[in-house]
Simulated assay, not measured.
Amino acid sequence: MTMQSLARQRGLSLIELMIALLLSATLLWGVLQIFDGNRNTMRMQTAFARVQESGRFATDLLVKEIRMADYWGCAPDQDSIENHLDVNDDDYTNSTVQALYDQIGANGIAGVDNTSGASVGGMTVLDGTDVLTLRGSEDACGGVGRMVPSTQAAALHVSAQCQVASGEIVLLTNCQSGELMTITSVQGEGGCSTSGGGNSASASTGTGTGTDTSKKTITHNTGNCNLAGAVDNATKVLQRQYGADARILKPYQRTYFIAASGAAGGNSLYVADTGASPMELVPGIDDLQILYGRDTDGDEVVDGWVAASSNAVQMEQAIAIKVQLVAASDSGVNADDLTVKDLDGVDTTYSDGRLRKVYLSVAKVRNRGRL
């Protein structure tokens, strides 16, 4: 290479450098656009998956609970069930579920339409949403036990696997009658000390069963039970002998509502279960709307869909329940504004960029009318 050719190698000109920078910036911009598009797509897919998961889980849960509401065993009617609880006991009158014990055998469905300033268990319900209360009873043995025949009219035996406990309120039913009472002791597991009822922890061990370990005795004596929160029994004489044809059930009351989430932000579906503090069930639920399908003429066909009523007779006519939920993503994903018309015909527009989906379902109350 000659000295003359070396002298001509003076580097890039300003124009060449600017063109190179422009090409590099264009290429980098394209890469960033692809990255941002992929990130937004991933966020949208994650949000959509979360909305589907929350909406489907909440819907399936409520539908299942609605179908099983108002189940009180096979007792013929409310009048056939005798309430042995002491209605003057402070643990009875102060109970947040007193309405449950007062309405055993009837009025298994209640609700509040378009709440305003309402609270459940100390939690503020989101204004404009509905509240659904379902009452009924479920197997006290959890599916692993049953009633055992007895040769004594006053003795109640359950299989050894049945995990009932002293202080629990149970509903004992067959297809002739029912008994609502507090268990005061369980054989081998102790119980509450009572005055005037002749019942104690020691008295329960081995009573009526001898050495038969396949079953255990439960008692329901009267007297002042010393277990915290336990309701005393005012009476203990049962209407008849209960054996293998009977079911031992545990009454429940569950109230579902929408409130601000305690951890994730946004709103959540909550449940207050049988006197317990509210528990967050499903995050990302912005609205709950309920309509009740009433059968007003007894032909087992819904005659009209109405909002919740404080009239117990009208609520007892509800044979189906329509549920509308609005599920939302955890955070904004630049989603378009969404206007939702609820079951009352009211429009609500969401414009915070979160992804939302509306879920609508209808459930038959299986324990009312024919299936």
Results as ranks from 00 to 15, higher is better:
residue 321 I to C: 00
residue 333 V to M: 06
residue 326 V to M: 01
residue 252 Y to A: 07
residue 238 L to S: 06
residue 267 N to A: 11
residue 223 G to C: 13
residue 223 G to F: 14
residue 240 R to D: 07
residue 228 A to S: 11
residue 252 Y to L: 04
residue 343 L to Y: 04
residue 282 V to Q: 02
residue 340 V to L: 08
residue 286 D to E: 11
residue 287 D to R: 10
residue 322 K to D: 03
residue 292 Y to D: 02
residue 305 W to I: 06
residue 300 E to M: 00
residue 311 N to Y: 07
residue 242 Y to M: 00
residue 294 R to K: 12
residue 340 V to K: 07
residue 287 D to V: 07
residue 324 Q to Y: 10
residue 231 V to A: 06
residue 257 F to A: 03
residue 224 N to F: 14
residue 300 E to H: 01
residue 275 G to R: 10
residue 259 A to Y: 11
residue 297 D to Q: 13
residue 337 D to Y: 07
residue 329 S to Y: 15
residue 265 G to V: 03
residue 287 D to P: 01
residue 313 V to G: 02
residue 302 V to I: 10
residue 230 A to L: 01
residue 338 L to V: 15
residue 309 S to E: 12
residue 254 R to E: 03
residue 304 G to E: 09
residue 279 M to W: 02
residue 240 R to K: 11
residue 310 S to T: 01
residue 341 K to V: 11
residue 288 L to R: 00
residue 281 L to R: 12
residue 256 Y to W: 13
residue 297 D to Y: 14
residue 310 S to Y: 04
residue 335 A to F: 08
residue 330 D to W: 09
residue 282 V to D: 02
residue 289 Q to Y: 03
residue 272 A to W: 02
residue 316 E to H: 02
residue 265 G to T: 02
residue 260 A to H: 05
residue 343 L to Q: 01
residue 308 A to M: 05
residue 242 Y to K: 01
residue 266 G to E: 12
residue 327 A to L: 07
residue 255 T to F: 14
residue 249 L to R: 00
residue 264 A to M: 07
residue 308 A to W: 00
residue 330 D to L: 08
residue 246 A to M: 03
residue 240 R to Y: 09
residue 246 A to K: 05
residue 327 A to Y: 10
residue 238 L to T: 11
residue 297 D to M: 13
residue 258 I to N: 11
residue 334 N to S: 15
residue 316 E to Q: 06
residue 272 A to M: 04
residue 224 N to L: 15
residue 338 L to M: 14
residue 302 V to N: 05
residue 259 A to T: 08
residue 257 F to Y: 10
residue 300 E to Y: 05
residue 250 K to M: 13
residue 235 T to E: 09
residue 335 A to K: 01
residue 254 R to G: 03
residue 341 K to D: 10
residue 269 L to Y: 15
residue 309 S to V: 12
residue 308 A to H: 00
residue 336 D to G: 08
residue 310 S to G: 04
residue 268 S to G: 06
residue 299 D to I: 07
residue 299 D to V: 08
residue 289 Q to G: 10
residue 224 N to G: 15
residue 258 I to C: 12
residue 313 V to Q: 05
residue 283 P to N: 13
residue 270 Y to R: 07
residue 233 N to A: 13
residue 299 D to Y: 10
residue 338 L to P: 10
residue 263 A to W: 15
residue 228 A to P: 07
residue 330 D to N: 08
residue 293 G to M: 04
residue 343 L to V: 03
residue 343 L to D: 01
